[in-house]
Every structure is written in C-alpha cells, then in structure tokens.
Amino acid sequence: MTKNLYILLIAFLGLSAAAAIADSIIRFQIGAEIYTLHAFAAWFLMLHITGVIGSILLLKYYYYRGYRFAFFTAIINAIANLSVAAIFLLSYSFITLSFVGRSYSMPAFLFSLGSLILYALSLTFSNIRKRFWLKLAGVCALGICLVLISAVIVHMYPKDVRINIILEKIVQWVPIAGSLINVLFIINFLGEISTLKAENTNIPRQKSLENLFGFLAIVAFVFIIVSGTLLFNQSYTQSF
C-alpha cells in the first residue's frame, strides 16, 4: 500500500462523502421528486461507481494491513449494497420490472443491513479496533444500524403515526451520517500516511495500479461535478 494509493483512497472516500451530502440536500428540498429528474439516473450511477472504486481501494488496505475479518465483511457489504442499487435501478428504469423491484427490495435491504452490522462489528471488535478512528467509525456504523432496525420494525408494525413520522425524519439524515463515517476513515488514513516508511512509498509494480486509479479518480470527479450540477439545476427549477 503506497502513499499514492492512500491519497487516492482518501480522494474517493472524500468524493463519495461530498456526493452523499449533496444528494441528501437535494432530497431535503424536493423529496421523492428527485426520481423524476432527467439527470438522476446518471447521478445515481456515478454515486455507486465512485463508491465501488473506493471500496476496492479500501479492501486493498484491509488486505495489506491483515484485517481479515474487516476484509471479508466489507466484501459482503459491498455485494449487498450493489444488490440494492441494482434492484432499485431496474425498478426505476423499466416499468415492467417495477413489481419485481418492489418484491425484492425489502429482502435486499435486510441483506444490506445485516452485512452492515457485521462490517460495523468487525471495525469495533476485531484487531482493527486498535486504530482509534476506525473503531469510532464502527461504533457510528452500529448507531446507524440501530436507527435502520428501528425504522424496519416501525414499518412492519406501525402503531404510532407520530413516532413513524419522527423516525422517517431521522432516517433522512442517515446518508449524511454515513458520509461522516468516511471522514473518520480519512482522518485515520491521513495519520497513517505520515508514518509510512520511505521504502514503501515508491514500489514500481504499484505504479500501473496508481495510474489506473488516478485516472478513474479524475473521471469520477468530472462526472460527479457535471451530473451533480445538472441535478442541482433541475432540482432548483423543480422547486419553483
């Protein structure tokens, strides 16, 4: 794991966090109408493509550091998140598959939630817990899981409408809380960069990998900016 790969990992985590916050701001403004915007599909794809690239670099970090439990649970969580995204995209893009999307959305969400709990536990209780900021990220992720579990229970067994409304408002802040977890990761990696040995900062066999992810970072940044600008403009028009 070279210094450049650390920097690229930080870049993708930061880009994902900024995009998640921007997405939440738009949703606060126009709610479900975001799905009717022409730029939404491109924006949705870029959000998840950026997240997948960041996840690949994060997996490389876990493997490099020997955090095996975090490595495997992160793989499961990434697969679960991709499943949720794929089901949503199918139901969003094809009307004929909307029923199928609704049928599988809850199982996929529960799979994603279960994998997130495992991932959070690995950050909190496995050998990775020695890294303070990563352990704190795991604790925050467990807090998010608690909120999501409460939302599922209330959704399945609605009793008090007022509690349901309050919980829905809390759930709206979950993406922003998730982006703050990325900030905790970034703080940890910034600390690790400063302790890297000089001989580990320039490994020739890593150069092609650094160049590839560097190129992907530039492309992701450009497309996030373009699709995000279009989405903001369309949401601004939609709000009037």
Rank of each mutant, 00 (worst) to 15 (best):
2 T>F: 07
6 Y>S: 07
8 L>I: 13
14 G>H: 02
18 A>I: 14
21 I>W: 12
21 I>R: 08
28 F>Q: 10
29 Q>G: 12
31 G>Q: 06
33 E>Y: 04
33 E>N: 15
35 Y>I: 09
38 H>I: 00
39 A>P: 01
44 F>T: 00
45 L>V: 14
51 G>E: 01
54 G>A: 07
55 S>D: 00
59 L>M: 15
59 L>Q: 06
59 L>W: 05
64 Y>V: 04
66 G>T: 12
66 G>L: 13
69 F>T: 12
70 A>W: 08
74 A>D: 08
75 I>N: 03
77 N>K: 05
86 A>W: 03
91 S>I: 02
96 T>I: 10
100 V>M: 13
104 Y>A: 15
105 S>K: 11
106 M>L: 15
106 M>W: 06
111 F>S: 08
111 F>N: 08
112 S>A: 14
114 G>V: 08
118 L>G: 11
124 T>W: 03
129 R>W: 07
134 L>R: 01
135 K>G: 02
139 V>I: 15
147 V>E: 00
150 S>Y: 06
153 I>W: 02
155 H>Y: 13
155 H>M: 14
163 I>Q: 07
164 N>V: 00
165 I>F: 03
170 I>G: 01
173 W>D: 02
177 A>R: 07
178 G>Y: 09
178 G>F: 06
180 L>M: 14
186 I>Q: 05
190 L>C: 12
190 L>V: 08
192 E>C: 09
193 I>V: 14
195 T>N: 05
195 T>P: 01
196 L>N: 04
207 K>Q: 09
210 E>N: 13
213 F>M: 09
227 S>F: 15
237 T>L: 15
238 Q>K: 15
239 S>I: 08
240 F>M: 10
